[in-house]
C-alpha cells in the first residue's frame, strides 16, 4: 500500500456500502467489501466489482479486489475501515471485527447515529481487542444512493461536508488525514458527542412515524412523509422532541444545532416553525 492511496475496507453491502465501494474503486482506490450474508455479495464477487451510475449519470465499473464474508481476509492490508450499515448492526459488526483489526487501522462509522463510536469501542474492549485502532464516527452518510441490482449501485448526490469525530477527539486529525485522499468532504467535529447529538433522524423519524402510523398502515405509506405528514401540531411536537435533544447536548457542553437551524443550513430552507417552509424541501 502506498502512502497517498489508502486501502479501504467497506463493511456492509447495502445502499450505502455498495455505492461507497464502487465510488472508491472507480476513483482508483483499492477496496475490499465485506457482507455478513455472503449471498448478498455473491454477484459482486462473480463480476469482480460493481456497476456504478455516478452523480452525473455516467456508468462506470468499480473493480473490488476482495469480496466476501471472511472478515480476516477483508481486513488484511487495509488502512481505513468504513462501516456502512444500519446503526443497529454496529454491535455485531464490532464483534466480528475485534479479532481481525490491526495496529494503525482507522474505523469510521458511516454514520454513527447516537453513540456509535462509544458503543463500537466498548465492544472492542469487551472482546479483548488489543490492536491500536482509531474508532471514529461520521455525522451522516456522505452519499444519497441506492442499490439498483445485485451488483449495481447509483449515487444521486454526494454531500459537500460531513463532520467526523474520533474517540478520543485528540485522534480526529489523524482520521481526517487518513480520509482526505479519498474524501476531502470530511471535516473535524469537536468530539463524538457533537456528531452523536446532531442526530436529526432521531428527532424526525420516530415521532413522525408514530403520529402518522395509522395513515402509514392504512395507505401503505402512499403519501409524502414530510410534506403531508407534518401538520402544525405535528411540527409542534417535533420541536418539543428537538428541544429535549438540544438540552441534553447543552448539559454535555455541546451547542447542538436545532433541527430548524440544520434545515436552514443543509437545505437553505426558511421558516419560523418546523411545519413551515423547511420540511417542504423534502418534497418528492
Amino acid at each position: 500500500m502506498s502512502n497517498d492511496k489508502p486501502v479501504f475496507a467497506v463493511l456492509g453491502a447495502g445502499h450505502g456500502g455498495k455505492a461507497m465501494a464502487a465510488d472508491l474503486a472507480v476513483r482508483g482506490f483499492h477496496v475490499h467489501l465485506f457482507n455478513r450474508t455472503f449471498e448478498r455479495v455473491e454477484a459482486i464477487k462473480a463480476r469482480g466489482g460493481i456497476e456504478l451510475e455516478t452523480e452525473i449519470g455516467q456508468y462506470r465499473f468499480g473493480a473490488i479486489e476482495i469480496v466476501g464474508s471472511d472478515m480476516g481476509e477483508v481486513l488484511t492490508e487495509v488502512n481505513v475501515v468504513m462501516v456502512v450499515i444500519p446503526a443497529t448492526g454496529h454491535r455485531d459488526m464490532a464483534t466480528f471485527c475485534a479479532p481481525h483489526l490491526r495496529d494503525g487501522q482507522v474505523v469510521v462509522l458511516n454514520p454513527g447515529r447516537t453513540c456509535g463510536a462509544i458503543e463500537f469501542r466498548q465492544v472492542l474492549r469487551e472482546q479483548g481487542c488489543r490492536a491500536q485502532v482509531i474508532v471514529a464516527e461520521a455525522e451522516t452518510l456522505i452519499y444519497a444512493s441506492r442499490s439498483m441490482g445485485p451488483a449495481e449501485a447509483r449515487i444521486f448526490r454526494i454531500k459537500n461536508t460531513v463532520p467526523v469525530a474520533a474517540l478520543p477527539a485528540a485522534d480526529t486529525p489523524r482520521v481526517v488525514a487518513a480520509l482526505r485522499p479519498a474524501f476531502p468532504q470530511f471535516i473535524p467535529a469537536r468530539n463524538v458527542l457533537h456528531t452523536s447529538l446532531n442526530n436529526m433522524g432521531a428527532v424526525f423519524h420516530p415521532a413522525l412515524t408514530i403520529l402518522n402510523s395509522a395513515r402509514i398502515e392504512s395507505t401503505q405509506g402512499n403519501f409524502q412523509f414530510y410534506i403531508e405528514g407534518v401538520t402544525s401540531t405535528v411540527g409542534h411536537i417535533l420541536e418539543a422532541v428537538d428541544r429535549e435533544r438540544v438540552t441534553v447536548a447543552a448539559a454535555l457542553g455541546i451547542r447542538a444545532q436545532t433541527a430548524l437551524e440544520w434545515l436552514e443550513r443543509a437545505y437553505a430552507a426558511t421558516g419560523d416553525y418546523l411545519n413551515d417552509e423547511p420540511l417542504c424541501l423534502y418534497s418528492g
Partner: peptide, 26 residues
C-alpha cells in the same frame, strides 16, 4: 391514543372513519 396516531390526518382535514383509524398496529 387513536387521535395521537391519526393526529396529522385529523389536522389536515381528512374525512375518515374514526374506528377505521384504529389500524392493526395502533
Amino acid at each position: 391514543t387513536t387521535v395521537v396516531l391519526n393526529v396529522n390526518r385529523i389536522e389536515a382535514g381528512e374525512v375518515f372513519d374514526f374506528y377505521g383509524g384504529m389500524t392493526p398496529t395502533g
